[in-house]
Nucleic acid binder design. Structure first.
Lengths: 138, 138
DNA sequence: GCAATAAATGCACTTCTGTTGCACTAGTTA
DNA sequence: TAACTAGTGCAACAGAAGTGCATTTATTGC
């Protein structure tokens, strides 16, 4: 049994061939990927299967969904022991306007946000847009 | 000439009947509205016209577009003298998970966000999700 | 005022992403 | 091995965004 298979079982997800492939793909990519990215990476992949696989991964906290403002849902592997839904674990995402890639800046936690009286904050989404490291040439 | 007509001309937008109606609708609503909201408010309205009107309004800085994570673009009137694209003017948006409405919290500016070396921030989008004043019953 | 021009609008159509239903296959358990 | 459950593939649909083109409305020059 490979490392990936073990990982998936730890998350209580049956390690099927497709899921292993998708997990591997996500692990290799350092950026957040859209469903269509995976689809075009594996010609054989069925959109529905990918869709449902990602849903499963999300439920089991293997990946977290990212809304980077492009209107397309993207996904990235959660860090080990990450609790995406807990406010303290929320990190910000950076979307490059040049290469169109979105990365998790896991080191950069979202600062405490104050909301007016009467409002109850449950979740925070923070996306910074601009030019990424690769594209800025630094 | 009405107040709204004057306003539109100030923004260098020709005040057509449709545009005046849409502007008025946006001004009355205190929340960010989606294209479909306006469409259902005016039965006669053509989706394409609304779409292009909002695009025009956006270009002329009459409204700003809001991405609240629902995947649907929403729009809200800019404040007088607002410079949406300038970082200092960026305010946060609150999306209520109960009533599904999105409001601009214009009083709440987005705190300065640090990004790693090599990254250049140009724009910041901050959406807080939770329960709004109306729904929390306070 | 009228013709020429430009802007705005309405209709039809396409594309893209997300989503669901259903049948089939593979894998697990008794 | 039979019965069951989870996973996959195909087809189809829904909703929003976007485009092309013809028509209407407004503006400008004569």
């Amino acid at each position: 049994m490979t490392e990936i298979e073990k990982t998936l079982e730890n998350y209580q997800v049956r390690p099927t061939a497709m899921r292993i492939l998708i997990y591997k793909y996500l692990a290799e990519k350092e950026i957040a990927v859209a469903l269509t990215d995976i689809e075009s990476a594996f010609a054989k992949a069925e959109r529905t299967t990918l869709y449902r696989t990602l849903k499963t991964f999300e439920e089991k906290k293997i990946v977290h969904q990212i809304d980077d403002g492009t209107g397309i849902s993207k996904y990235a592997l959660c860090e080990k022991g990450c609790n995406c839904e807990i406010e303290q674990d929320l990190h910000l995402h950076f979307h490059c306007n040049n290469c169109n890639e979105t990365v998790c800046l896991t080191e950069h936690k979202i600062p405490q946000i104050k909301v007016p009286d009467g409002y109850i904050a449950e979740d925070v989404n923070l996306v910074v847009k601009g030019i990424c490291e690769k594209c800025s040439g630094q």
